[in-house]
């Protein structure tokens, strides 16, 4: 007869029980309606960590080769992991907004479109100028442009959802990106792997906890 308990029209026994009921139900709803924040950040964080890590090992500073991987492998790995992360973000978005409609899902959909359109645009521009770039600068220009866009969109996300930590992540990505460009080819890949990729993973690990305490 669990039904009769669930159907209970009776008031909660005392104020403490009422408060416990409220807190438990809110926590359960947050867990089940809202997706785990790690699904947003970890695919990107690991893509950067692994992809740029391999680029650094193959094309280190001053043309050094730490691990003699095939020349095509690191960049291909990065691109494949980034595409996978994009697909996972799409699935996460569908899960997050699939059963909730209204302002949040519209915000989420517009934001998702902003990412797709901005990255498509940047890709077209870079493909157009790619052949004119010196070989050693190609990876740097591609990743710096895309990372600048990523940083800007995270800051915009912070503005849309009034989420300070998301905004701070955007600032962090933007600053790390500039540091990588200043450091130059080779070092940039290391900075992107550790500071940007690692930072994204750390952020993902704590984002859920931060959000619940907002």
């Amino acid at each position: 007869m669990t039904e009769s308990f669930i159907d209970n029209d009776q008031p909660p026994g005392d104020p403490a029980e009422a408060l416990r009921l409220i807190e438990e139900q809110r926590a359960a709803a947050l867990r089940r309606i809202h997706v785990d924040d790690r699904w947003w950040y970890w695919p990107w964080g690991f893509a950067w960590l692994i992809g740029f890590g391999l680029i650094f090992l193959r094309n280190g500073p001053d043309g050094r080769v730490f691990v003699d991987l095939p020349q095509w492998l690191p960049v291909l790995t990065l691109v494949v992991l980034l595409v996978a992360a994009g697909v996972l973000s799409g699935i996460t978005g569908a899960r997050a907004y699939g059963s909730v409609v209204g302002d949040s899902s519209r915000r989420g959909a517009y934001y998702g479109w902003a990412w797709s359109i901005a990255f498509t645009g940047a890709t077209v521009i870079l493909v157009r100028v790619n052949d004119a770039l010196p070989l050693d600068l190609r990876t740097l220009v591609w990743s710096a442009t895309m990372t600048a866009l990523t940083g800007a969109l995270h800051m915009a996300g912070g503005a849309i959802w009034l989420n300070r930590t998301l905004f701070q992540l955007g600032v962090w990505i933007s600053v790390v990106n500039v540091a990588g460009v200043v450091a130059g080819p080779g070092w940039q890949a290391l900075i992107m792997a550790v500071a940007a990729g690692g930072g994204m993973i750390v952020f993902g690990a704590f984002a859920g906890r931060w959000r619940r305490h907002d």
């Binding site: 009921l21 809110r26 359960a28 089940r32 309606i33 059963s99 909730v100 302002d103 949040s104």
Partner: peptide, 30 residues
């Protein structure tokens, strides 16, 4: 001030203003 309705309202309060949830999903959460 009734256990079931308090739970319904508490769960709905986690939605953003202007958001709606599908009935079966709410039923599942509760």
């Amino acid at each position: 001030h009734a256990q079931a309705r308090l739970r319904v309202v508490a769960a709905l309060s986690t939605l953003g203003a202007g958001d709606q949830i599908a009935f079966p999903r709410l039923q599942d959460v509760l």
